[in-house]
Write a protein that binds this DNA or RNA. Sequence first.
DNA 1: CTGAAAGCGCTTACAG
DNA 2: CTGAAAGCGCTTACAG
Lengths: 347, 347
Amino acid sequence: MPKSSVTLVDVAKKAGVALVTTSRALNGTGFVSDETRNKVVAAAKALGYSPNLTAKILKGGRTNLLGLVVSNLHSAPIIEVIAAVSLAVKQAGLDLIIYNASTELGVTKQQDIHRVLGSLCEGILLALPTAQEGQLAEFESSKVPVVLLNYWRNQTGLPTVRADNYHGARAAVEHLIGLGHNRIAFITGSSYTGQSHERQRGYQDALKQAGIRPVKGLIVQGDFSQSSGFNAAQQLMALPKPPTAIFAANDSMSFGVMDALKERGLQIPGHVSVIGFDDIPASNHVYPRLSTVRQPLAEISTQAVRLIMRRIRPEAAQPVADDSLIELPSALVIRDSCGPAPTAGLA
Amino acid sequence: MPKSSVTLVDVAKKAGVALVTTSRALNGTGFVSDETRNKVVAAAKALGYSPNLTAKILKGGRTNLLGLVVSNLHSAPIIEVIAAVSLAVKQAGLDLIIYNASTELGVTKQQDIHRVLGSLCEGILLALPTAQEGQLAEFESSKVPVVLLNYWRNQTGLPTVRADNYHGARAAVEHLIGLGHNRIAFITGSSYTGQSHERQRGYQDALKQAGIRPVKGLIVQGDFSQSSGFNAAQQLMALPKPPTAIFAANDSMSFGVMDALKERGLQIPGHVSVIGFDDIPASNHVYPRLSTVRQPLAEISTQAVRLIMRRIRPEAAQPVADDSLIELPSALVIRDSCGPAPTAGLA
DNA sequence: CTGAAAGCGCTTACAG
DNA sequence: CTGAAAGCGCTTACAG
């Protein structure tokens, strides 16, 4: 039984003052003479006192804790989000607790998350791209503020901060078109996050705008994984008229595409151009360096934290009109994986 | 003020029974008639009651929470650890809270971690390869059980579960020697985790055992990052007598090595063999697929959770002799990036 | 500037 | 099977 924690009364006794004075001395609340404070602080230190957070919370005090729920640790963007949220929360002077709600875990009932985080945290950030309506319901009636990050799947009453997938995808495809490509393939991601759909819409509108007739076979189903990108590229390059450029719905699939292309002895971008979406750190390290669309993950995270903070510390926030949906622009990042379309004569 | 949470007394009032009965009915503790239980459950549901975790904790109840502290989200192995620990904790019937103690966050004083996690969790797992003695001191006197994962940096009184880096590295180098290589380079990781040191020791002993004279210039300093692997490989291949095989202290650096080799037009493993350490998921997806040494991260995580569980739920554990240091074997994984040493004649 | 009292929401003995 | 009481460790009014 490691139940031997020292409490405030122990410190009070040792310092020879009242319990309440001890509390004040340690928290810097109210008036305490310097002499008393020093005595108390010394006693606390001598005893190795550390306050019991839960008692504080129960008393209605602020926990200074924010919760972040994530559902897929094996996705590079989510790691960026975690890092950025950690930093933003720190800067706001609070602490962050992360909860892994991976569905692989099976047993994870959304109710658990809410029970645990709901009574511990002052606010909750949800990075749950695949969450279904039912899962969100619990949070919609939550007593603590909740914000959604990069959520596209359904309508929801919850405030949301996300990237503009549509215009980012358009920019990628327009870049390719500008390089002279007109046989441009698209590899989709999993359909259930909604993000892939937005990117596909951007792809299709860019083609239409340029007067390029869409070709059915040039859209291939992927699932955001590197190997699905590999397979999709295999399939595309086996076409009678293979594409000269491939736009994958995320960077991971682009890596798979590059591998498949290299295995066929094809040069990037000499023979085929490749462009991705996300701009994860690895994209700047592969060879050739991947052109892609940058999701403003850091800014999304910062804004989401700002939204939460505005709700839990209204006194420190400047009023803003409407912030129930913030959509941040994605930016084209041009590196080395896209080049001019090979001329027909040489192809 | 979202202070409108329904409490046990609300439920009790609505159900028309005493507070204590409500508690029992909801927790399945003690005797409650089916009729009463049904009434209570119905009332709780109608009110949308969700128990206040902190009050439970304060009463000395179990929190059913374990904490995991990590320090570098941008390392692939740590992600595996998080995933595996999440799963193991789930299977043990508890919940996991993750705390990001990245030093990039600057402000993170170890004390915060301890204060927050210490009063919330029944046990704490520390995946802090770079932690210094001082940082660990706080945890050594902790009232809640603490276990270290993959810690090598210093001596510590804390129970530790880790991979056998030394024999894993030896196996990697012996594999290379078996393929006829005798100019084998080693790229170190950051020195401050202690892991790189162990791997280097394995490298050196394998060479010695085979009667291969160590060459100073064949050991190059890296820092576990992909780009440091790239640079190290550049440097190595610029040597008058470049190596025919490169052993990098982790997989990320191996990727950098491969990129550097490809950029020089060298074939892997035709011209140069490459082997890494970790076996992160990407290693099976790069081209060519990377031979490496597999850290038993999943098993390390499982064992660490088992250690904690034994301490916080002694009744459910079978007694074991000594478990203050568990070292799990690393396994050689042979894929496509290592081949026979090019014969001098052809080189 | 310091202290005695009440209470946060819950559970654990102790009585019926 | 059900209930009244005490108390977990702390903080916030309320009095001196």
